[in-house]
Write a protein that binds this DNA or RNA. Structure first.
Length: 797
RNA sequence: GCCGAAGUGGCGGAAUUGGCAGACGCGCCGGACUCAAAAUCCGGUUCCCUUCGGGGAGUGUGGGUUCAAGUCCCACCUUCGGCACCA
């Protein structure tokens, strides 16, 4: 038999799959019967600002293994691919290269697609989509209109994170330690009119419906953290001089008697009113201005507290104590009510502030957790006291139980060029007017210069901006902001279900039949952002009657990062081996195997060249052994129940369980390697052909090209369509087993015995062993433990 | 500080329900083939002691439960990830 040559084999089968459209799954005619079992296998779509790196090889090979496995275990498998092609990185790359972002992403898409095909991923290419394609973003805009009509999106002036370098607004999720996640520039606070999705209205749905998700606990925990629900109370403090009540949110109503001062955020709307009537007016206004200009990072750091006294006092509803009202920037306007009661004895931050400004501290909870100095509540354990105090507040009209969230509404306005235009017209008479559905898509116009200058580049396209108001016909102006790309990726999985639809984003019945995604795979860096936004979208679509499902991703597998030479591999790091180079040097199959064999795919892993060399060796060995079996007609006997046949069945059972239930991708490879080792030691076994076929069949999801070639040499065809092998339970049972004999818990002997020996016989044989007797030392056996089919443990005095 | 994950040979890791620790691979050592090398094949490879029969220790640390613990319980250490002036 000839030598294993990866390139010949891989080009041959890639051509056959392409020509036979092997992995396309046509949508059924309406009403036609369809396979009961479906599996929607999806990985996060790539961002075409560069080419693929080895991290992508991991993600898409994971999905590929699952897609093959589920197809061969009887499901209709939907496995599409597309490109998240709008967004900043492409635009920044374009600016650097002096090219149009569209040219850059489209060139990258061609290259990415070629690499994907060279890796032999089983993708339904007929469903390919790009989010920058007007045929796609037309429907992003259409969905925006539905959200707008139903009040799920709105405009408000808000303090935003402004990146001075990228000249755009960033979501909270895109700010890391006060710096822009993408370019690293220090983020500034700015007040701007922005578009928001009302995601906070779904905070409880997002939390409660996690119970329906088969997701890693750590991802769910991150989302819980991110939503940050906390229960407490809202309490009204009276300001007599102004005849107003100011609400505060607290998680510790039990400490109400310990409040010794009161703090407003500098941005609080009442601060202006207080300043007007305060003798300290100038001081207050200066402070507010300074606080606003203070770098976001410095303000969040929590060091050195600052603040200013307003000259006013608030009245504590429980004890009528008059406490001074301060303005301080350690209180945030966009959490709770923007005002707090300060309890320096029981809150670290309030404590620091009190120390800095020499304010009184009053202890109201003792070391046993009981209330002191708190009128009729004194002596109660603090958790009971919290309830009692809230009840008292309620009955006196001064407070009520309340819930607060860390989650903010999703601001998605971007002052950049390369994104989906927001289909809105501003009219002096009619206000904010949506573009009528039939005028979609609002095409992203060409502009002279899309360099960010603080005003959105689309504003330059004067002819495009000026448009008659859809309502009154008077001249209006188009919205010149574009959408965050996370909007594009919040519904793409639905479009895949019906990607060519020209009348709707997708046919609801088709989408309902494929959704939810059964196996979603992607990086843990999207644990909060993309995965929360997509969940939110799905819930709104459900309530708008556009989908039956409330969760988009039933099962999520978060893959680890791949490092090379200790550095995280991303589009920012150069010098790493590229997927194309690996395929060139080792072949697609060896590359695919090596990335999955490194270790558990949900943990970070270091990629080394020696791994792929080992896989190349394994494949050569497999090629030679299977070739020998295929050429040896005498090895073709019916599989008996010999050792090799049993090994093969056990390997099937292990691989099936690992892939289907345990989501473990590296151990099936080890199991198959063991079987190959067994086969190499018994090439003339009557079950040799069966073992060879089993090996080839089980390795197919990982190394589909070489598997297909060997399958053909074994005299069969179209392995990718063959049913996944099934382990025969009769072959899993051994008729002998190795009995382990322990004395006082230490292994002293082991030997094979028939599987059907009764327990007393097992004990008798154990005692007979000379090695065991040496350790028994003639002592009295006080206890005998027998574990069927495993061991005997003799406990002596 | 709060939440989450993880600590096993020289390295990546396996051990699924408490029952033989170290599967599989990498690396290394030895051997075969070769004029030689590469490739390939065969064997060995947790550590310590050994009279070569075997013996002892061992899964981050210290305790505990159990006939039996990598696995369960308690306390702690370290690393990684997330959140954090969020009241």
């Amino acid at each position: 038999m000839d030598r294993y040559d990866a390139h010949t084999v891989e080009t041959k089968w890639q051509r056959i799959w392409d020509e036979s459209r092997a992995f396309e799954v046509p949508n059924p005619e309406p009403g036609a019967p369809r396979n009961e079992r479906k599996s929607y296998v999806l990985e996060m779509l790539p961002y075409p600002s560069g080419t693929l790196h080895i991290g992508h090889v991991l993600v898409y090979t994971l999905g590929d293994v699952l897609a093959h496995f589920y197809r061969r275990t009887g499901s209709d498998v939907l496995r599409p691919m597309g490109y998240d092609s709008f967004g900043l990185p492409a635009e920044n790359a374009a600016l650097k290269e002096g090219e149009h972002p569209r040219d850059i992403v489209e060139r990258n898409i061609v290259s990415i697609r070629r690499t994907m095909k060279r890796l032999g991923w089983a993708i339904d290419w007929s469903r390919e989509l790009s989010t920058h394609d007007p045929e796609y973003y037309r429907w992003t805009q259409w969905l925006f209109l539905k959200f707008f009509e139903a009040g799920h999106t709105y405009r408000k002036a808000a303090l935003v994170n402004w990146c001075p370098n990228d000249q755009t607004v960033l979501a909270n999720e895109q700010v890391r330690d006060g710096h822009c996640e993408r370019c690293g520039a220090e983020v500034e606070a700015r007040k701007l009119e922005q578009w928001f999705f009302r995601i906070t209205a779904y905070a409880d749905s997002l939390l409660d419906e996690m119970k329906d998700l088969d997701w890693p606990e750590r991802v769910l925990a991150m989302q819980r953290n991110w939503i940050g629900r906390s229960e407490g109370a809202e309490v009204l403090f009276r300001v007599d001089e102004l005849d107003i009540d100011i609400p505060v949110f607290t998680t510790r109503p039990d400490t109400l008697f310990g409040a010794t001062f009161f703090v407003l955020a500098p941005e609080h709307p009442l601060v202006d009113r207080l300043a007007e009537q305060s003798p300290n007016a100038d001081e207050i206004r200066t402070y507010v201005r300074k606080a606003g200009a203070r770098p976001v990072e410095e303000r969040a750091a929590g060091t050195d507290k600052t603040g200013v006294f307003t000259g006013f006092f608030a009245t504590n509803p429980v004890n009528d104590a008059r406490i001074p009202i301060w303005v301080a920037d350690y209180v945030l306007m966009d959490y709770g009510t923007g005002a707090i009661m300060a309890v320096p004895a029981h809150d670290e931050r309030d404590g620091e502030f009190a120390e800095r400004f020499d304010l009184p501290v009053k202890v109201v909870i003792d070391d046993d957790g009981k209330l002191v100095d708190s009128a009729q509540f004194a002596g109660l354990p603090h958790d009971e006291a919290a309830k009692a105090i809230v009840e008292w507040l309620g009955s006196h009209g001064r407070g009520r139980p309340a819930v607060s969230y860390r989650l903010r509404d999703w601001g998605y306005s971007r002052q950049r060029y390369w994104g989906c235009p927001i289909p809105i017209v501003y009219c002096d008479d009619c206000g904010i007017v949506p573009v009528p559905e039939e005028e979609l898509p609002v095409i992203l116009p060409e502009v002279e210069d899309y360099k960010p200058k603080g005003i959105p580049p689309l504003a330059q396209a004067e002819d495009w901006v000026r448009v008659p108001c859809p309502q009154c016909g008077k001249e209006g102006r188009r919205e010149v902001e574009t959408m965050d790309t996370f909007v594009d990726s919040s519904w793409y999985f639905l479009r895949y279900c019906d990607p060519k639809n020209e009348d709707a984003p997708y046919d609801r019945e088709l989408a309902d039949s494929w959704m939810p995604v059964d196996h979603y795979t992607g990086g843990l860096d999207h644990s909060t952002v993309h995965l929360i936004y997509a969940r939110y979208f799905q819930k709104v679509l459900n309530e708008l009657g556009l989908s039956s499902h409330r969760e988009p991703f039933k099962r999520f597998f978060g893959n680890g990062f791949v490092t090379q030479g200790g550095a995280k591999i991303s589009k920012r790091v150069g010098g790493a081996a590229t997927p194309d180079e690996l395929v060139e040097s080792y072949g697609a199959d060896a590359t695919r195997l090596s990335i999955l064999f490194i270790g558990p795919a949900d943990q970070d892993m270091e990629w080394t060249p020696s791994g792929v060399e080992g896989m190349q060796r394994f494949l050569r060995r497999l090629w030679r052994l299977v070739g020998e079996v295929a050429d040896n007609s005498s090895a073709g006997g019916a599989p008996d129940d010999g050792a090799l046949a049993r090994r093969a069945h056990r390997t099937i059972a292990r691989a099936t369980d690992d892939l289907g239930r345990r989501q473990q991708f590296h151990t099936p490879i080890a199991a198959v390697m063991e079987l190959v080792n067994d086969l190499s030691k018994a090439p003339d076994d009557p079950a040799a052909r069966f073992a060879a076929e089993t090996t080839v069949s089980l390795i197919q999801p990982y190394a589909p090209h070489v598997a297909e070639e060997l399958w053909e040499r074994l005299g069969h065809e179209r392995l990718w369509e063959q049913p996944w092998p099934q382990a025969d339970p009769a072959f899993l049972e051994e008729d002998t087993f190795e009995l382990v004999v322990q004395v006082n818990g230490k292994v002293r002997d082991r030997f094979r015995v028939p599987a059907d020996l009764p327990e007393d016989e097992l004990v008798a044989r154990a005692k007979e062993s000379p090695k065991v007797q040496a350790h028994l030392n003639g002592g009295e056996i006080r206890q005998t433990i027998v574990v069927p089919r495993k061991l005997v443990n003799l406990v002596v005095g």
